[in-house]
Each structure stands twice: as structure tokens, then as C-alpha cells.
């Protein structure tokens, strides 16, 4: 398959929630297409980045509407439960933020990996693959981790195990929602290196949801910046410094930088127009 053929095509995506105080419009008219690349969705809490990621997999509690939501030539909006079973976890997988809450605490790591890779495989084959995947995410003693329980693993190890589990089905698209935010900085980079290598060697697409502009600037290929449910700017990651939207510029300016100490940090002056849908 050609590198630049879009695997995901999202147009006019909206997610709405009904609340006692009226409708909450969490994602507003979001459109993007992605190929086999590392695409970042960046924003602060409440910007709609997580809901965008969940809407792609049909995992949001809100009401989803879109002009187009296509994965290859499959219309994700029209899928029934059976259709979703063929996609979720098989062709599109998701890695959650915190391995402490996302791994099953009463199932060993090995059993969870095997379960994720059981469809169409014998138990022996799935077991062998699980050990291979644990090795692929740079776990030095795969057999020990295979036999371990989630509470016996450190945060970095747990997150690697979760990535290994998502890879069991060899997905074409991985949606990672703050996969490294709970990790220490050096472990974080090691986990990112694993994801980076996997994107390259397995020809996989990655949607990387994060609040950390500095991290995605150095890690991803392309960045969507979200504010108040809208994509306010889209940039190649390496051109992020020349961003033009006042929100992006504000976010870049208010993070303290080691190399350029300032006596006082810039603060963000928010403009309610940023969150308004432009017709």
C-alpha cells in the first residue's frame, strides 16, 4: 500500500453530550486525514482531544455525528456491533493513559496478551506471539513479565505490556491517549522510542493524544492543536515554532524553558472566539 494513501478520513466530526444544564458540545467540526504517520492531537484538559480519539473507535458516551468517518473504505458511522468487532482491537487499537487502571488486575499479563491475540490463532501460537511482543517492546525478561500480575510491574513496564497487548492483533492504526504522561521522563522517552520503531517497522499509523507541546514537537510528524472542541491550527511538527494561532503561540510561550530562563512566565489571554465554530 502506498505510504501517502490516507488510512483515516475524518470530516465534520461532532461529539455532543446531554447534561442537566443543556447540551455540551465537546468536539466541534473536526476534520483531518491521516496516512501511516505520527499525528499528534494536542490540547489542554477539556479541549476535546480524548473525545476525538474515542469517537474514531466509537467508544464515546456522547452523540457522534460526522460528514465522513472512514477507515480505508469502511464507513465507521454505519458499523453495527459485528462490524465494530472486526475493527476494534484488530485493525485499530487504543492505548490508555494509566496502566494501573487499564490492565485487568485479576488476570496475569500473559493471559491478557493471549486473550488479545486469540482470534484465529491456537493458544500455543498466541502464547509464542505474546512473548515476542513483550520482547518487541524491549522487556528484558519476557517470560517473567508474561507470568507477572499487573501490580507487580512498574509504571513503565505496565505501559510497555499494554502496548504489547495492543500490538497482538497487528493493528494498522494505534490511538494512544497520553500513553506516557504517567511515566518518568527517561522511561517516557524509552516507551516513545518503542512506538516510533513500531510505526516504522510495521508501517502503522499513530494518533498520539497529548497535552505536551514540547514532546509532540520532537516526536510526531504533524500536530493538530485543539481548543474548546475545535482544531484551531494544524502544523508540521518541525514548524510548530512558527505557529500563527494565538492559542498555539500562547501555549508555546507559557512553558518554562531550561535553556532560555525568563524572570516571569508569559500567561495565556484566552479569547472566547477560539472555541467558536466558524461557518
Amino acid at each position: 500500500m502506498a505510504m501517502n494513501e490516507p488510512i483515516l478520513d475524518v470530516a465534520g466530526l461532532n461529539v455532543r453530550f446531554d447534561t442537566p444544564k443543556g447540551e455540551f458540545h465537546a468536539v466541534k467540526d473536526v476534520s483531518f486525514r491521516m496516512c501511516r504517520e505520527k499525528l499528534a492531537i494536542v490540547g489542554e484538559s477539556g479541549s476535546g482531544k480524548t473525545q476525538t480519539g474515542r469517537a474514531i473507535l466509537g467508544l464515546t458516551q456522547g452523540r457522534v455525528s460526522a460528514e465522513r468517518l472512514r477507515f480505508h473504505d469502511i464507513d465507521l458511522l454505519g458499523l453495527d456491533a459485528g462490524g465494530w468487532r472486526g475493527i476494534r482491537g484488530r485493525r485499530i487499537s487504543m492505548v490508555m493513559q494509566d496502566p494501573k487502571y487499564s490492565l485487568n488486575p485479576v488476570m496475569s499479563i500473559g493471559d491478557q496478551l493471549v486473550e488479545a491475540g486469540r482470534h484465529g490463532r491456537s493458544p500455543e501460537k498466541a502464547r509464542g506471539m505474546a512473548l515476542d511482543m513483550l520482547a518487541a517492546v524491549k522487556i528484558r525478561d519476557p517470560l517473567r513479565v508474561f507470568r507477572a500480575w499487573p501490580h507487580e510491574l512498574s509504571g513503565g513496564m505496565g505501559q510497555r505490556a499494554m502496548i504489547a497487548m495492543m500490538l497482538m492483533a497487528e493493528p494498522e492504526l494505534l490511538i494512544a491517549d497520553e500513553p506516557t504522561s504517567a511515566l518518568d521522563v527517561t522511561v517516557r522517552l524509552q516507551v516513545l522510542a518503542i512506538l516510533d520503531d513500531l510505526v516504522k517497522t510495521r508501517d502503522m499509523g499513530l494518533i498520539f493524544i497529548s497535552h505536551d507541546l514540547n514532546l509532540v514537537r520532537t516526536f510526531c510528524d504533524r500536530v493538530l492543536i485543539m481548543y474548546g472542541g475545535r482544531v484551531v491550527e494544524e502544523r508540521a511538527a518541525r514548524d510548530l515554532q512558527s505557529a500563527t494561532h494565538p492559542y498555539t503561540r500562547g501555549l508555546l510561550a507559557c512553558a518554562p524553558e531550561i535553556d532560555r530562563p525568563v524572570p516571569r512566565l508569559a500567561t495565556l489571554q484566552r479569547d472566547s472566539a477560539w472555541a467558536e465554530v466558524t461557518p
Partner: peptide, 11 residues
């Protein structure tokens, strides 16, 4: 805290 709120608190 979010990075923009962090800036306000640090200031």
C-alpha cells in the same frame, strides 16, 4: 495543572 495554569501559579 495545565501548562497555561501552571504559568499563572508559578508567577
Amino acid at each position: 495543572l495545565d501548562v497555561s495554569i501552571q504559568a499563572e501559579i508559578l508567577n
